[in-house]
Amino acid sequence: APRMPQLVKEFLRCDPDELQLRTQTTTRLLQEHARWEKHGEPSTFRLLCLMADQTLFSIVEWARTSIFFKQLKLNDQMKLLHSCWSELLLLDIISRQVLCGKEGSLLLVTGQEMGLSDIDSHAGLTLTSLVQRGQELVEKLHILKVDRQEFACIKFLILFNPDVTLLEDHQFVESVQAQIEGALLEYTLCTSSHLLGRFAHLLLCLSELRSLSTLAEDYLYCKHLSGEVPCNNLLIEMLHAKR
């Protein structure tokens, strides 16, 4: 077995339990369903928003209890999360497809599968393009054989972004970012030193993820303006934070 850097072990330890997230999300959907029974069947889009909202709760809890993040002041914690919530949300969806998904379908956090062709047939241009680019990214990460350890590192790389403006402790965030990159590089060299440039490819995938997340936020914001996103939740609060 390759030697795993201590930091990568720590990142893995911080990773939320997938089964717990699945149970929490299913419970939340059942509660919402009972509430909606009086108002008719909720749309698939509304259910997906609730899943995203529940995942956001788990992302915040992951960050709050994680190494390094705990050392930051509350204002810096909020700035970092406001800046990257949609990337972390997309990464959660994308990593699930890479690690456990099947071709042609979307594996949801609840363990259910949705046919991608079903989504395409109901989606407008923006969503179709988002799904397609998302699929391409899944494919790239699949070819790179990105594993659980690397996804755990990537999440921290996304969170500790020194480009976020007006951080009180910018230096700390910068030093953590450097440590994460170092740990990820060391890990990739141990596991796949024969694959030249794999680390650089991983970083390229990250910039594609960032660009996708901007599109996804714009899409959700439009849906919110047309009243299709359920109100009073974390998703809405995050959507408003940057605007």
């Binding site: 915040v60 509350l74 909020m78 406001h82 609060e237 995050m238 934070a241």
Partner: peptide
């Protein structure tokens, strides 16, 4: 602004010991 981000602030700042 404070009020706008009330939920995130609460989630990050909640006291686990209570």
């Amino acid at each position: 602004k404070k009020k706008d981000n009330a939920l995130l602030r609460y989630l990050l700042d909640k006291d686990d010991t209570v």
